[in-house]
Amino acid sequence: MIQFTEVYKAYPSGKEALRRINLFIEQGAMVFITGRSGAGKTTMLRLIGLIERHSRGQIIVNSQNLERVTGNRIALFRRSIGFMFQDHRLLNDRTVFDNVALPMVVAGHSYQETRKRVHAALDKVGLLAQEKSFPLALSGGEQQRVGIARAVVHRPAILLADEPTGNLDPALSWESMKLFEQFNQIGVTVVIASHDLEMIRKLKKSIVTLKSGKLLTAGGEAEE
């Protein structure tokens, strides 16, 4: 569950990236955030994942008021979230296995448990055979799937994906979306920032449209 109440975000430069956002995303929903470049999509995901702090208003994520999540509680909070980025952000000097294992390792899970979950996640994205490869030896689409496996291996309550299909051809994009849908079906709240209106329309999910930091529509169809 994600709730924005009268949320503003101004960056230190003074730039107001989000203005007066009111939004409610139910637990288990799958939501797309769209809008032109610079509209504030990434900023919104950053606020939910506590990568940035909002300037005014209130954000509640999984019944936690984010203002009160400080110090070591930030780390614990982030363990309930899975992140995905357009540029993948994999560790190139670690194997696929180690990359996917990272969220399990930082949370202190046992090796047996970690291995079991990593293998399940890699199996899901079809990369089990490449577990010993290094990211740079994989194609862009494969790297992205490693990113997906890493984002879900620790069974987060919320999956945040920023332009997950930005670099992929339509077929691969569609495959990734189907994967997200599967995670959503087992109860993960999925929030995806994307330009890809055509694909979003096909998926028939809730859409949040931003324009210059303001909310245009919530829950309806995508509009230009």
Partner: peptide, 10 residues
């Protein structure tokens, strides 16, 4: 990246 996935400073 470690911090992003919930590693504590310790």
């Amino acid at each position: 990246i470690n911090k992003l996935f919930g590693a504590t400073n310790a």
